[in-house]
């Protein structure tokens, strides 16, 4: 469904992503794991069209995304939940959800409400806060709202950038559970960029491990779990405690 080849992203003179290949098949949950600064955000932002790569090919549902802006990619069936959630803090939960369907002008009023109800059903906490400004929600609720909003466009591919960012483990578990349901029951394909390896590998089928803008390792989730001491990627490898 998504095929990325030779992706390169540059910020000024700094190379954020350096020749990255990845693919996501229909119906999969794929996780892109990496420490801070490994190039996760650059990758997903390039996939969604928020940053322009200097090189590389991005194919989504057999169409070349290279010339399309972010909005056109949404219309094509891709939805990104950006790092830090990006809810419209001064607008109500309801308005945030409605705007999620912005790329589908055909759905209005009754259909829109149904879609919103459906999104709320996934995250019942949001229902109680329908007319509250999104900025007054807790971090976990904002993340749920951001996901629910992305679902309003009925995406074929949902891309999440660090959904666990700054959230308590309990909330992360809840979100992970919802994402699993989303994949199994509604057939949404999901790509998660995560630092939290567990959230990723517990629910994903396959994963990539990203280091310094390149794929360091790829495999199925159990393979990655067993083959690698994942903690090395976070707590710095063998030499971390000098005794």
């Amino acid at each position: 469904m998504l095929d990325v080849k030779g992706l390169q992203v540059r910020y000024g003179t700094v190379l954020g992503v350096d020749g990255l290949d990845l693919h996501v098949n229909q119906g999969e949950i794929v996780v892109l794991i990496g420490a801070n600064g490994a190039g996760k955000s650059s990758t997903v932002n390039a996939i969604a069209g928020l940053v322009r790569p200097v090189a590389g090919l991005i194919k989504f549902r057999d169409a070349d995304m290279g010339k399309l802006d972010a909005a056109a990619r949404v219309e094509h069936g891709m939805a990104l939940v950006i790092e830090g959630r990006g809810v419209f803090s001064e607008m109500t939960v309801r308005e945030n959800l409605e705007l999620g369907a912005y790329s589908r002008p055909a759905i209005r009023s009754a259909a829109l409400r149904r879609a919103a109800d459906h999104a709320i059903a996934m995250f019942p906490r949001l229902g109680d806060r329908f007319d509250q400004a999104a900025g007054t929600l807790s971090g976990g609720e904002q993340q749920m709202l951001a996901i629910a909003r992305a679902l309003m466009s009925s995406p074929k591919l949902l891309v999440l950038d660090e959904p666990s960012l700054g959230l308590a483990p309990r909330i992360v578990d809840e979100i992970a559970e919802r994402l699993t349901l989303l994949s199994s029951e509604e057939g949404v394909t999901i790509l998660i960029a995560e630092q939290n390896a567990s959230l990723g590998l517990d629910i994903a089928k396959r994963g990539y491990i990203l280091q310094n803008g390149r794929i360091a390792l790829e495999g199925t989730a159990p393979e990655l779990h067993s083959n690698t001491d994942l903690i090395r990627f976070y707590l710095g490898g063998q030499s971390y405690v000098r005794t």
Binding site: A48, G49, L50, D69, A70, A71, V74, E75, A79, L80, V81, I82, G86, V87, F88, L99, G100, Y102, S103, R149, A150, M152, S153
Partner: peptide, 9 residues
Amino acid sequence: RAAQTIGIR
């Protein structure tokens, strides 16, 4: 930025 991710230009 977030607006772009839901299809707003």
